[in-house]
């Protein structure tokens, strides 16, 4: 199992100018990122949508490398997003998926068939040209340059330690420092994108 914060620390030097959608890794990434205006920590607008959101960002900004840290719970909710991504095949899209085998934000209940799903195989079968799966940080770090050095879409499944939250949502400390609208406006400002 991989520690998510350590994984993101290992990724950070490889980030370059990429646009990063930190997804479920948002709480850690906001502490690590050195280019917050190129990040899209939109939190969890509606579970299951990050993959399609990442696809949209990647297709709209083909000259930018777009990196998404998705989760297995999100993928399970909208697995049909994978064939769409594979069909559109954005060369600038790198799809990392954190698999903690559970719904951590609701108390750690297991996702269906939690320990027996090969998400990299599902992505490969959906048409992703390149897929990987890692369950330890060293192997992941060793392959990062190779992963990011090839054209997308690339899918990377990562077994991570669950960070289970068991307090009521209203009692949790918010890690977001900007509103969703502000996050989007900041990225648009950074990239010189006009319009609503």
């Amino acid at each position: 199992m991989i520690d998510t914060a350590e994984m993101l620390q290992a990724f950070a030097p490889h980030r370059g100018d990429s646009i990063v959608i930190p997804g479920r890794g948002g709480r850690h990434w906001t502490q690590i990122s050195d280019q917050p205006n190129r990040d899209l920590p939109v939190g969890d607008p509606a579970m299951g949508g990050h993959a399609s959101f990442g696809l949209g960002v990647a297709m709209s900004l083909p000259d930018e490398r777009v990196i998404l840290f998705d989760s297995e719970g999100d993928i399970l909710m909208n697995m049909g997003a994978l064939p769409t991504i594979a069909e559109k095949a954005p060369k600038n899209f790198y799809h990392f998926m954190l698999d903690n085998e559970c719904y951590a934000t609701t108390g750690g209940q297991p996702v269906p068939n939690a320990k027996n799903i090969a998400y990299d195989v599902i992505a490969k079968g959906s048409g992703y040209p390149a897929t990987y799966a890692f369950d330890n940080l060293e192997d992941f770090a060793t392959h990062l340059e190779e992963i990011l050095g090839q054209p997308g879409p690339v899918f990377v499944a990562l077994k991570v330690n669950p960070e289970v939250e068991n307090t009521p949502i209203g009692a949790r400390v918010r890690w977001q420092t900007r509103s969703r609208t502000q996050v989007i406006d900041d990225l648009k400002g950074e990239l010189g994108i006009e319009g609503p």
Binding site: L40, P45, A51, S52, G56, S60, G80
Partner: peptide
């Protein structure tokens, strides 16, 4: 026109959100 086929309609809203963030008009 770039057509993006989805397999469940909810994916359309997140896809459109991503495209809009990047300055496109879906």
């Amino acid at each position: 026109l770039d057509l993006i086929p989805v397999s469940r309609e909810g994916q359309a809203f997140s896809t459109a959100a991503g495209l809009t963030v990047g300055g496109k008009k879906p």
